[in-house]
Design a protein around this nucleic acid. Sequence first.
RNA 1: GGCGGGGUAGCUCAGUUGGUUAGAGCACAGGAUUCAUAACCCUGAGGCCACGGGUUCAAAUCCCGUCCCCGCUACCA
Length: 698
Amino acid sequence: MSSPVPSPARYTVTAALPYANGPVHIGHLAGVYIPADIYSRYLRLQGRDVAFICGSDEHGVPITIRADKEGITPQQVVDKYHAQIRDTFAGLGISFDIFSRTSHAVHHETSQQFFLTLHEKGLLEVRESEQFYDPARGQFLADRYILGECPNCHNPNAYGDQCERCGTSLSPEELINPRSALSGAVPEKRLTSHWYLPLDKYEPWLRSWILEGHKDDWRINVYGQCKSWIDQGLHPRAVTRDLDWGVPVPLPEGAGKVLYVWFDAPIGYISATREWAAHAGKNWEDYWKRPDTELIHFIGKDNIVFHCIIFPTMLHAEGSYILPKNVPANEFLNLEGEKISTSRNWAVWAHEYLEDLPGKEDVLRYVLCATAPETKDNDFTWKDFQTRNNSELVAILGNFVNRTLVLTQKFYDGRIPAYSPAPAPEADQALAAAIAGAPARIGQALEGYKFRDALTELLDLARLGNKYLADAEPWKTIKTDEARTAQVMHLAAQLTAALAVLMEPFLPFTATKLRQMLNLQGSFHWAQGGAIDLLRPGHALGQVGLLFEKIEDDTVERQIAKLQAMRTPAMTTEPTPIPAAAEAPAEPSFIGIEDFAKVQLKVATVLDAVPVPKADKLLQLTLDAGEPQPRTVLSGIAQHYTPEEVKGRQVVVVANLAPRKMRGIESQGMILMAEDPATGKLAFVSPTAVVPGGAEVR
RNA sequence: GGCGGGGUAGCUCAGUUGGUUAGAGCACAGGAUUCAUAACCCUGAGGCCACGGGUUCAAAUCCCGUCCCCGCUACCA
């Protein structure tokens, strides 16, 4: 179908720059890189002009922290991870036109020029503010470089932006006894000046561009997040920082300062395009400055405001750039029911997958596309991975191809039979029509960024093929009706060829393998995925083998065991057990003694009680329940008791209640309280005489 | 706390402007079949559409409230 709007002359497709202080995991792949790659491959198959751009983001404080920790330079950190990430992407067939890095000279130059243009146009504001300063080292300190006691959980080594033990986000002012991570000195506040991008001035423009202009074509989650930001009021944002790792501010008065990483990172897309264009003999400005270019950013949901509000504002302010046409942000992928966590090492790392399951790149691509979190957070499980491989890739797609090719070998010595004589029976016409419409159906889904739907369409085609064979039964008709059998086998073989074209964006390795099996040379246009004449009569197949292999139980069990073994325990907790499905009680008003026995009640003494930040009902209690480690329990009693009233008290705690996270803190039990039905007032349930902590309540 | 998104079969997801018995794939059960990697094909079972109110002839869909999950949250108590 042709659209009335002329299709763009070229596409610039970007995938979020991975941060070069760690490897990439399946969440990154499902959310960003696999959809972006499918999209780019699809466009290329259509013969469109595509620049698929990515690179590693190599500036910012976390990298300097890691360098300090490992006793190496920041450059060594980013060298290591840049190479690792680059190789991982290559291993998975992510077909970037370039995977650059923000530490390259071209990027420093590009982002400095960008800054200067804004500066010279008078679009940046200079403001003074107070920042923490390390008098011993003579430098300003990023929040992350300030350590102190967490006001919440009293971890003595909380960072100025976050306490890693209890997960609370902090500001350096909140830390008790702050000290510099560099020298240990007590930081002092000093005046410093920075350049700011006055986002507030662009609010009317953003309103009309996003809220009016993209109401219907941006995803609801993206649009909603933007609207929320704009409605809350925008504020000037500092574009520079006092730091020595990054792109230096290109002004004399900016000595010792660098561009803030959020400012330089998205410009990395532009720098990478320049670097690519220089090698590819292209003009980079075509991909960023011409209105007939479509710019698409693939990102995760945490990146929405940067790519929809901040970066476009930068581009708009600079004046010579185009704006993103769409920003298809995905939600997050969970793993085995829990959030993926780098710090707890709860992740399937892409580079380890490639080592552990060699030759199964496309299986991961398939599964991550099929379960991509397009509209809401989604869950990856190894069991589902296995099922999708065995029941979909092997049983539907691989099986159709295999039975077709095996039959062709048996009946025709591996040569495609001629389709004759016409006319075609209805079943053949229906199948041919389904094939003919497939490129448009799949393409339409892809152009709407509905990658799961597109993949379903692809697999449906193989399903049709299986049904076609089952209905036509060529293994029977070969004995009775040679002409009909030839028709069926001819058409089935043509479908495998069409599949080889259509699967390319999703399963590039398999597509290559299938083309070899079919002995198909050369490259194909996407539209040829709708053809039923890719194989000439008499064409000889290549060597036929299996497209996919079954994955056995022990393979996924090993992966699950590995996950559990490698996970870093989250501080004080054991893994959250998945609550067993509650059986409907036969007798609702009574429980048996065995049910009661499941509940473990203990007396505990409240050692400490503190309010939970940003929660008005919760107190965080530290309990002595006669166990080696004190227990942390959150209790919704803050409106009834002050921490002082609670300290030292003896309480009854449900000791074997599944841990529960509230406000970022894990609660490891429940305090029993009695509630006055009239007033709602809560009262503690306590022993009337002092008993040792840990005493059982029965 | 504020804001955004989500909560639909065992699992992963569709459900267009409110309109018959809420759909698909996988898993499961039965049947048929044997060309194919015990794969394919047919049939079936399986849902208080998070919960509670409301509007309507009619609500998964619109309105109000509650709960839960994820994200964002500015030198904000």
